[in-house]
Design a protein around this nucleic acid. Sequence first.
DNA 1: CGCTGATCATAC
DNA 2: GTATGATCAGCG
Length: 231
Amino acid sequence: MIELISPPKSLDILLARANQLAGYSLGEIADSVNVDMPLNLNKHKGWVGNFIEQLLGATAGSKAEQDFTHLNIELKTIPISHQGKPLETTFVALAPLTGNVGLTWQMSHVHNKLQQVLWIPVEGEREIPLKDRKIGTPILWSPTQAQERMLQQDWEELTELISLGQFDAINARIGVALQLRPKGANSKVRTDAFDSNGLPIKTLPLGFYLRNSFTHTIITDHVRNDSNTYL
DNA sequence: CGCTGATCATAC
DNA sequence: GTATGATCAGCG
């Protein structure tokens, strides 16, 4: 896209930028910065996330762990219903299918990425034309102790299944907060793993996702204090 | 109609 | 293929 926006030098600057977006529609903002936008997300699933990244000065296409490495903050847009509930799960990270021996929760990418997240709610009802969907008030979140425990427990259970090569037993129904689901171009994609006998196999790539019930609590817990609140 | 499994785009 | 950003689609 365009608009070269420098990375925010401080948390305050990042939050100020994010707050300035609240209340405006994607179309209004895209117009103001002369960015072309798709009619819908059908073939542009990551468009909103990439657009917000650029508006806030995240380094696009980076391989860094977080979007704002220097601030230790991960950016996530989240589609919200009229009732303020998440409409989609939140992808966190690709699940390593090998090399999990000796890996702990504290060392994991999931833990690292979820230490501090700046959530940007965006209206996500499919009946609302993409350009008319409004951006909401940003939420800077870090897991509570209870949430942290929940995440760790799920991560350990899911990672254990991977380590044991129990891929037949893995499905999206496991886990209270976190779940494992396919993450790839399509169902034919394969990646390296080890089966229950420790033998090399090729299997479907998986990713860790946050369930809507979990992200909903993040939004619910967030205290709104004044009239300058959207969504 | 919520949720799981499948899928889309892009950079390297 | 991996890693970034996610949402689509249709079964139960």
